[in-house]
């Protein structure tokens, strides 16, 4: 395959970035999008140029590290997959592909296609955890969990925190991510002791980071590689309202 790539290049956080155009040839349709970038970077290195910086880790769609806004969509044109699972057969020979980093105030570009997503870490640190007492682990069956709750918690827990929801949202809102993290704990007995505190703290941190407000376009759900449902956002709205009414904080 022969492709034209328009890639965002930016030296560092402060620098002003710009698009750079690359022609690339000999790409196999069975390569992943990241492998195509590997080929391009090898070419750049051989030419003595700076390779394009991009995030990647597991390359099997479960770590949430890879990003890339491809032709106007996070993780490219396919539904329910990350960029590392996107294959070049999803494109036509001769295509021009525009690749940008995630764009959001709270996700500043570090270099080229790499953005700083530590805002997500700070939201988790604010309340996305459960306190566990030390000692022997309880027998699993001593805490009954309804099958429906276990399913809902598991579906929410599938979130890999990649940030595609923020990238897709026209408001750069992080509500799908935050709601998934809140929901997985709100559905389980282990999440109950800190439930109200968690709802208030995570929303406060989310707002403090400067993410936008949700206007229910549901672009996040459509673009989420793990197909997290916006029903989690409705749950978070209920959690937050309930916590406001009931919490002593």
């Amino acid at each position: 395959m022969k492709l034209t790539l328009k890639v965002w290049r930016q030296k560092n956080r402060e620098a002003k970035g710009a698009f750079e155009t690359h022609q690339i040839d000999g790409i196999s349709p069975d390569m992943s999008f990241l492998e195509m970038f590997d080929v391009l970077n090898e070419k750049l290195i051989n030419e003595g140029k700076e390779p394009i910086a991009f995030d990647h880790d597991c390359r099997e769609g479960i770590c949430g590290t890879c990003s890339m806004f491809i032709n106007g969509r996070p993780h490219g044109p396919k539904r329910g997959i990350t960029t590392c699972q996107l294959h070049m057969r999803s494109f036509q020979d001769g295509d021009t592909i525009v690749v940008e980093p995630w764009r959001a105030g709270p996700f500043p570009v570090i270099k080229d296609l790499v953005v700083d997503r530590s805002a997500f870490d700070r939201i988790i640190a604010s309340g996305g955890f459960v306190s566990v007492n030390t000692g022997n682990a309880q027998d699993a069956n001593s805490i009954p969990v309804a099958k429906e709750d276990a399913d809902d918690a598991f579906d929410a827990a599938a979130c890999i925190g990649c940030g595609a929801c923020v990238a897709a949202c026209k408001n750069a809102s992080a509500m799908l991510f935050v709601s998934a993290k809140m929901s997985q704990l709100a559905h389980l007995p282990q999440g109950q002791p800190e439930r109200r505190r968690r709802a208030l703290a995570m929303v406060a941190q989310m707002d403090k980071e400067g993410f936008g407000n949700c206007t229910n376009t549901y672009a996040c759900e459509a673009e989420c590689p793990k197909l997290i449902s916006v029903s989690n956002i409705a749950l978070m709205n209920r959690e937050y309202l309930g916590a406001t009414v009931k919490s002593d904080e």
Binding site: R73, R103, A104, G105, P106, A168, K170, A172
Partner: peptide, 14 residues
Amino acid sequence: ARPVRYAVTNGKAN
């Protein structure tokens, strides 16, 4: 919340 806009967006896809 998005000070730098995207060059290409495809909102109708989602």
